[in-house]
Amino acid sequence: MHGTLGNLPAVTAALAPQRARRAVPWATLRMLALGLASIALFLLAWHLLTTHRVVAHVRFTNVPTPQAVLARAALAFRDPQFQMNLLISCRRIGSGFLLATALGVPLGMLMGRWRLVREAVLPALELLRPIPAIAWVPISIMLWPTNEESIVFITFLGSFFPILLNTLLGMQGVDPILVRAARCLGAREAALFREIYLPAVLPQVFTGLAVGMGVAWVSLIAAEMIAGQYGIGYFTWEAYSLVSYADIVLGMACIGALGLLSSALVRLAARLAMPWNRAA
C-alpha cells in the first residue's frame, strides 16, 4: 500500500517534461490531482477517526492509527517470521493458480473442440461450480494428507472454474473461417490446436486468468484463516486473537498489495503473450 503511494509523485514527475511542451493534458492532470486528493482524504479520515477514538455506533476505539500501522510495518518487514508468512502465501497462490491454469486451459480447449468431451464433463463441473471454494475447507483437510496441500487445493479450486469456463467460452468464439483457412493450408488437428485455437482463445484465457487470480486470493486468505499455519491470512487472523491490532491492518494492506501485484503480473503476461493484440 505504502509503496504504491510513494510511486505516484515519481510517475507524475516522469510524465511532466514530455507532456508540458504539447497541449496541456488537463484531463490527465485533473485525474492525478483528484486521485492524490482522494487517497489523502482517506488517510486523513482514518487518522482523525482513530486518534479521536470516535464511537458512533461504529467503534474506532481499538482500530490502530495509520502511524501505528506504519511503525509496525517498519518492524515487521525486517522480521524473518513475517517475511516467511508473505513468502508462503505467494507460494500457495503460485502453485494453486499455475495448477488451475495447467488443467483449466487444456480441458477448456478440449471441451470447446469436441462436443462429446463437453457433454461428458460439463454436467459434473456445473454441479460443483456453485460451491464456493471456502466451503471446501473441511473436506479438503480430510482429503489431503498435509495442511499445505489442502490450502493449495482450495486456492486451485477458486481459480480453476473461471479459467476453465472462460477458455471454453473463447473456444466457442473462434472464427470458423480461420480454422477453414488453416485446414486448406494443410494444418492437421495438432497444428490446429497449437497454431490456431490456442492463439485465438488467448484473450479469453487471460480474462479467465485475471478473474481466477482474484478468486484465488479470496480462497487462499479464507483457507489460511481457517486452517492455516503460516501465511498472511493466518498472520492477520492471529493478530486479532493476540490483540495486536496494528498487525491486523498491516496484514490487510499486504493482502491488498499482493493482490494488486499479481493482477499486474497477469496483465503483463497477457501483453507479452499477445503482441498482436492492441487492446491487451
Binding site: 472464427d175 473461417i177 480461420l178 477453414r180 483457412a181 488453416a182 485446414r183 486448406c184 493450408l185 494443410g186 497454431e195 490456431i196 492463439p199 485465438a200 488467448l202 499477445m274 498482436w276 493484440n277
Partner: peptide, 20 residues
C-alpha cells in the same frame, strides 16, 4: 476427400491469422 494445400482457397471474409 478433404481440404488439401493442393487446392488453395481465398475467402470473401478476411481470413488472415491476426496473431501472425
Amino acid at each position: 476427400r478433404g481440404p488439401s494445400p493442393d487446392r488453395g482457397m481465398v475467402f470473401q471474409q478476411y481470413s488472415l491469422f491476426p496473431w501472425m
